[in-house]
Amino acid sequence: MIILNRKQLTKREQLVMEILWNSEVDLSANDICILAGNVSIYTIQQVLQRLLKMNYVEVSGIGYNKTSITRKYKPAFSQADYITKNINDQTSYQLASNYIRFSEDISSLDELEELIKEKKKELKG
């Protein structure tokens, strides 16, 4: 899912999103607080509420934390989608060019080549 017109995140928002993007499981505010290190649970909860309002995260379910019920969160879109929408076309081109120049993974380059061929066909109509 590609998200259009997303604003840049604050440091705390970025921290929470990085934790969620890097997790293979959905996380509670307490889980995020533990992984964030020196950030209070109150701050994490405030950040999660802002991210929910901005549609950056979604409530994915309910979990249990010791004796209480807690919400579990997951990112609403991938880190790659976020980065793509927050860099300009020139930077995107430079990143792609550099990846191609310095990559030694033939299978990745083959996949990129196929994507380029498909996109060219799509644009030509």
Results as ranks from 00 to 15, higher is better:
residue 20 L to P: 01
residue 21 W to V: 00
residue 21 W to S: 03
residue 23 S to F: 02
residue 24 E to L: 03
residue 25 V to A: 04
residue 26 D to E: 01
residue 27 L to N: 07
residue 29 A to N: 01
residue 29 A to Q: 01
residue 34 I to E: 10
residue 37 G to S: 06
residue 39 V to R: 08
residue 39 V to A: 11
residue 41 I to E: 09
residue 44 I to P: 02
residue 45 Q to W: 00
residue 46 Q to H: 04
residue 46 Q to F: 00
residue 47 V to G: 09
residue 47 V to R: 09
residue 48 L to S: 05
residue 48 L to H: 06
residue 48 L to V: 02
residue 49 Q to F: 03
residue 49 Q to C: 08
residue 50 R to Q: 12
residue 50 R to I: 01
residue 51 L to I: 02
residue 52 L to M: 12
residue 52 L to C: 09
residue 53 K to V: 07
residue 53 K to L: 11
residue 57 V to F: 13
residue 57 V to R: 12
residue 59 V to N: 10
residue 61 G to T: 00
residue 62 I to C: 03
residue 62 I to V: 07
residue 62 I to N: 02
residue 63 G to T: 04
residue 64 Y to F: 10
residue 65 N to L: 03
residue 67 T to W: 04
residue 69 I to N: 09
residue 71 R to K: 14
residue 72 K to Q: 01
residue 73 Y to I: 00
residue 74 K to Y: 06
residue 77 F to T: 00
residue 77 F to C: 02
residue 77 F to E: 04
residue 77 F to R: 08
residue 82 Y to N: 07
residue 83 I to W: 06
residue 83 I to S: 07
residue 83 I to V: 12
residue 84 T to H: 15
residue 85 K to V: 05
residue 86 N to M: 08
residue 86 N to L: 06
residue 88 N to I: 04
residue 88 N to M: 06
residue 89 D to A: 10
residue 92 S to K: 15
residue 93 Y to V: 03
residue 94 Q to K: 15
residue 96 A to P: 02
residue 98 N to E: 15
residue 99 Y to H: 11
residue 100 I to G: 08
residue 101 R to I: 13
residue 103 S to H: 07
residue 104 E to P: 05
residue 105 D to S: 14
residue 105 D to C: 11
residue 108 S to L: 05
residue 110 D to C: 05
residue 111 E to D: 04
residue 112 L to V: 05
residue 115 L to W: 12
residue 116 I to F: 01
residue 116 I to P: 03
residue 116 I to M: 08
residue 119 K to N: 09
residue 119 K to V: 13
